[in-house]
Computed example of a mutant assay.
Amino acid sequence: MITGSMVALITPMTSTGDIDWPALRKLVDFHLQEGTNAIVAVGTTGESATLSVSEHCMVIKHVVDQINGRIPVIAGTGANSPHEAIELTEAARVAGVDACLLVTPYYNKPTQEGLFQFHKLIAESVSIPQILYNVPGRTACDMQNDTVDRLASINNIIGIKDATGDLDRGRDLIARCSDRIAIYSGDDPTAMELMLAGGKGDISVTANVAPKLMAQMCAAAIAGDRERAQQLDNQLLPLHSSLFLESNPIPTKWALYEMGMITEGIRLPLTVFSEALRPQLKQAMQQSGIIQ
């Protein structure tokens, strides 16, 4: 089972919007050094919506080759077309990832039965461990716990990233499904509580800029050490909120730029972080001990 702090890795880009391969290598090395438990390549934070299929597959392959088995690699391979999702998932399997992360099909607004059949089809089509991803705030599609419970009986569906931020729903998932699948948080502000309740990790935006702290906090929470987990999470709290002052990954990319890790490159329709908000994020980074 994959557990702990799983960074939802940004995709670094040049000023012209091209993928910055040297910067990607630098980021992967950074996470290996800082104790991140797994890397999620080309998820929402990795701007998957604006990468071409070939770019998407190249980033996954690049990360897998560099990691070389040292920690798990999870590939974001979801799409609102089942054919594209299967194509991306198969490409990730061939590249050698440990698991795939499949977001609910956005824009289509399917029924719960449609969601069940969609994820069942992908699971049956590609023999690789798959993690469901429910983020209704982005997709206009909310996978209900009853549907997750049904999908949890499919052998190669091994987990769900619950990005609803609703702890009652998360606890219900743990009560119903944790004997069959891992319940992961996809919401940094509530991740500690979900892990203390039995969640197995956090697929994290904050881990991009504070990987060591996030790894330590996740380890404490999974171990049930509330006092230590709370101490660490208190240090992370300014980042949890400030990294969403504008749409993710806009603030995260700017924070990494401030840390000297990447350039400011980002793809439209996203734009560089607003100057008026930069002092607030910079203060949060200072409060968390990320920069001086």
Rank of each mutant, 00 (worst) to 15 (best):
M1I: 13
V7L: 02
T11A: 14
M13F: 15
G17T: 09
W21Y: 01
P22Y: 08
R25N: 11
F30W: 10
H31T: 04
L32C: 11
A38Y: 00
V53F: 13
I60L: 06
P72N: 02
H83C: 01
T89S: 12
T89P: 00
R93M: 14
D98C: 02
D98P: 05
L102F: 12
F118E: 02
S125C: 05
N134M: 02
G137C: 05
D149K: 13
L151G: 06
I154F: 09
N155Q: 05
N156V: 15
I157A: 11
I160D: 06
D162C: 07
D166L: 04
I183K: 05
D187E: 15
D188Y: 15
M192Y: 00
M192Q: 12
L194W: 04
G199I: 08
V205D: 11
A210P: 07
P211K: 03
Q216H: 07
A223G: 06
D225C: 04
E227A: 09
R228S: 10
L232P: 06
H240Q: 13
S241P: 00
S242A: 15
F244L: 11
I250H: 00
I250W: 01
A255F: 11
M261R: 08
L268I: 05
P269E: 15
T271R: 05
E275D: 13
L281V: 05
Q286A: 11
S288W: 04
